[in-house]
Amino acid sequence: MNPGLPESGTAPAPQDPRLLATIDLLRLSKAGDDRARDELLGRYLPRLRRWASGRLPMYARSLLDTSDLVQDTLLRVLQGLDRIEERGPGGFQAYVRQAVLNRIRDEVRWAARRPGPDEVPESLADATPSPLENAIGADVLERYERGIAGLSAEDRELLLLRIELDFDYAEIATMTGRPSRDAARMAVQRALAKLAEAMGHGT
């Protein structure tokens, strides 16, 4: 057994927040548990910031430093937890991901309109690819996003954690309340198969 993993998806309290599933942390945070809220921030913020850096066009990357849109978005989501919990497993990650993507779009447009020496025309701003688009191509990214959007929240969470945020299987097992690393791995592979199927049909 991996000592870092919970024996089951339901974590007994009191317990080290680092060993709790995300859904349990959300419940505790909603009840006012600051440790749970800090754990959620610590768990997601660094990786989401790096994730966002791949989604921001180069000229807008300074937004991550100047206004830290990811931290701001994450805090706002945590303050409005009532809306999220009811979405069930995976709802939190999907909600945060979409909220950050929306915020990125807003901020990029704002940055494009902002006068200054680094001003980028709005038309160019819209057409300027993010590093991720540069890496895989805008068409491929669009297909991927469409495929992701069509999955269940649970599958979306698994793929976000593994494919986009690069959590290892042990961490994913903890965060999604699965009994073992292998169970998390199998779940990720199943979600991946569904995504490939959805994208394959979309071509």
Binding site: G54, I136, G147, I163, L195, G202
Partner: peptide, 12 residues
Amino acid sequence: ALRAIAGVADFS
């Protein structure tokens, strides 16, 4: 599709 997903994963 899998190749495209692998591209996203590698980049991430």
